[in-house]
């Protein structure tokens, strides 16, 4: 039920966000059209951090409660993390080419994003090489917690290392047109709801997966 409501809401919001991003928001003086990438690039970047924290949180909850539902949440968060880091990296690269003249500038935030993506992939590789269900959940939870702790360290070390990226537009008193800000909020909301919808679908699938695994086990035991 919740899933259906979220699905419809995300469809409506996405269409509205497209309208806000492409038509409602005013043109930017220096960059022209390519700046409109911001409306989906920035929320994707933020959501990838949210996924990393969700993954760590699910890990902590699993270690405390030992309930596999938290492990399912962790998988969902990690998959969303891969989706969001991939989207923000690729759009960032497409945006950097006309503005900075290069595809990849090794600036602070893009490097951080790349590392976050590598962390999510490492998380999946770890899961793939752990055969036992219980052990897989436990060790992946520990790795998720360690990865979550790493995010602020990565953030500051890379921040101090190099800064070419514009300062965050939502945090701090950067000067941004109120119409642009509104459009950015709308697209952030739309993408958040979409991710929440995908997460609920993923959790439902994970439950079925476990049931299938259990039944397969039963059938094999019977044979």
């Amino acid at each position: 039920m919740t899933s259906r409501v979220l699905g419809i809401a995300s469809l409506v919001l996405m269409v509205f966000a497209l309208y806000m991003a492409l038509i409602y928001a005013p043109q930017e003086a220096q960059q022209g059209t390519p700046y409109r990438i911001i409306y989906f690039h920035v929320p994707m970047g933020i959501l990838s951090f949210v996924s990393a924290y969700l993954l760590g949180f699910a890990g902590i909850m699993f270690l405390i409660k030992r309930d596999l539902k938290w492990d399912r949440l962790a998988i969902g968060a990690a998959e969303l993390g891969v989706l969001c880091t991939a989207c923000s990296l690729i759009t960032g690269s497409i945006w950097a080419k006309p503005i900075w003249g290069v595809w990849w500038a090794w600036d602070a935030r893009i490097t951080l994003q790349l590392l976050l993506g590598l962390f999510f992939i490492a998380y999946f590789m770890l899961r793939a090489y752990l055969p036992d269900r219980e052990k897989r959940a436990k060790l992946a939870a520990v790795f998720g917690v360690l990865g979550m702790i790493d995010v602020p360290f990565n953030y500051y070390s890379i921040e101090w290392w190099a800064t070419q990226h514009p300062q965050p537009v939502l945090r701090g008193g950067g000067s941004i047109d109120p119409d642009m800000r509104l459009a950015l909020y709308v697209s952030a909301l739309a993408l958040t709801v979409t991710c929440a919808y995908l997460l609920t679908r993923r959790l439902a699938i994970a439950r079925v997966e476990e049931e299938v695994e259990y039944l397969e086990h039963l059938v094999h035991a019977h044979e």
Binding site: L115, L118, A122, L146, G147, D150, F153, Y156, S157
Partner: peptide, 8 residues
């Protein structure tokens, strides 16, 4: 596992 986490 180690290199992404120890980059800082």
């Amino acid at each position: 596992l180690l290199i992404p986490l120890t980059l800082p």
